[in-house]
Design a protein around this nucleic acid. Structure first.
Length: 421
DNA sequence: TCTGGGGTCCTAGGACCC
DNA sequence: TCTGGGGTCCTAGGACCC
């Protein structure tokens, strides 16, 4: 058995933890650059404001309903996420952190208990310890746990915890849910299924294997098996190392100068390299891309180039140099650029990476320990305590975040003050 | 003025080999 | 008219997820 624990409207809930006045009020959180709405409180969902709506298209709705708007504050959300996951970890070590706001828990060995009760105790503890409300779905497979979670969230009768095996009429339940809500059915498959007369989860579950295999690949077949209660997607307790790492951002304002692009790119490379070192690996191939704003009616240019590195590395200064070389080779004067980014590929474990033919072992060790020290200091003092001069100081290209809440939990200077009386 | 930033897996088809 | 039978590796593109 699995439980899927999912934080309700996670980013909104994070904002509410430190400003209880927001409870019961309509709140949204925006994507990077204050572009689109990526999180909505229930009040906002009821108003009918869609997920992903560009901010500039919903200004009037925001004004009309007095919606509170926040820029995304990933430092805060990341920290609260860690607290939620630590809390869940108290209940079982057999757990998969699936995303910033979701985790699967294995309930193996607990089958004899009342799992709904168990779920309620998890839910209560998370709320008490972190202030974040969660919903919990319980089922024999991950795919069904996802569905159960949706029911826990939607149907207030269940009080945030729903065990699918405890439902008296499972056939009716599956018949009442439409296929597009199944984990693994996106808009394309939903259309394909509709064309073939499959509209409900029950109908999907009962489709012939051959048809599913043919039209939805092996992945689809696994999904259908899971709907039948046969577990095919195991818990992944340790996330496999990433095979590719991308780091990119849109700019807050159009950027025209090569120097500014180089600064921005250096900071993205630096972030990508940290991710590389966290998973103890090195990259053999680097790509850089550069693009103008396709939404604008103005001269467009975009390009990307790929470079095989002379030897796999995770050493930030070298990676920045290579990225700058690629960028300079593509850069063209006279465009208003919107975005640049770097990707790292052919990632190998540190131990498997061949030695650098062009530098001595001592030199490699020195680079390695320099990176370790920088990462350590940034880990203790906060990201960005140490950074590379090539990342720039002025950072004209920074993303827009005009409605940012304080980093309540990770900056001494931004910790909230409690006043008595 | 204003439209995010990451990831995964699978398949078909081409190039190339014997 | 009729045009082997496997293999492997790579890439592009399609589908999905949060």
């Amino acid at each position: 058995m699995f439980a899927l624990v999912d934080c309700n409207n996670f980013y909104v809930s994070c904002e509410r933890v430190f400003d209880p006045m927001l409870k019961g009020r309509p709140v949204v959180v925006l994507s990077n650059n204050d572009g689109n709405v990526v999180a909505r409180s229930n009040e906002v969902k009821e108003i009918g404001l869609d997920f992903g709506a560009p901010l500039f298209k919903c200004e009037s709705l925001i004004a009309q309903h007095g919606i509170h708007v926040f820029s995304s504050n990933y430092t805060l959300y990341g920290d609260l996420s860690r607290r939620v996951m630590d809390t869940l970890g108290q209940f079982t070590p057999d757990m998969e952190i699936y995303s910033i706001d979701e985790a699967f828990l294995s309930l193996e060995g607990l089958e004899r208990r009342d799992l709904t009760e168990y779920g309620r105790s998890i839910r209560k503890t998370v709320t008490q310890w972190t202030g974040i409300p969660v919903s919990i779905g319980i089922a024999p497979t991950k795919t069904l746990a996802k569905l159960a979670n949706r029911i826990a969230k939607k149907d207030s009768r269940y009080g945030g915890v729903f065990d699918i095996t405890a439902h008296p009429r499972p056939e009716e339940l599956l018949e009442s849910i439409s296929v597009e809500h199944v984990w693994g059915v996106g808009p394309r498959y939903a259309k394909l299924l509709a064309r073939n007369g499959v509209r409900t989860v029950r109908e999907l579950r009962d489709m012939p294997d051959r048809w599913i295999r043919k039209h939805m690949t092996i992945t689809g077949l696994r999904m259908v098996m899971e709907l039948r209660g046969i577990s095919c997607i195991p818990l992944e307790e340790a996330p496999p190392p990433k095979k590719g790492i991308v780091s990119s951002r849109s700019f807050g304002h159009p950027v025209e100068r090569l120097e500014d692009l180089k600064e921005a790119l250096a900071s993205y490379v630096s972030r990508a390299a940290i991710k590389l070192r966290v998973q103890k690996s090195r990259a053999s191939v680097m790509g850089v891309f550069l693009t103008t704003n396709p939404f604008k009616n103005e001269p467009q240019y975009s390009n990307y180039r790929v470079l095989r590195l002379p030897c796999p590395t995770s050493y930030t200064p070298n990676l920045i140099t290579f990225a700058h070389d690629i960028l300079e080779s593509m850069f063209r004067e006279g465009f208003r650029y919107k975005k640049t980014g770097v990707f790292l590929e052919e990632i190998l474990p540190e131990n498997d990476a061949p030695l650098d033919l062009f530098s001595s072992p001592q030199d490699s060790d020195r680079k390695h320990s320099l990176m370790r020290t920088v990462d350590h200091i940034n880990g203790r003092r906060g990201a960005g305590a140490l950074f590379y001069a090539s990342e720039g100081i002025g950072r004209e290209w920074r993303m827009r975040r005009s409605k940012l809440s304080p980093r309540f939990t990770t900056r001494w200077s931004e910790i909230p003050v409690v006043r008595a009386g």
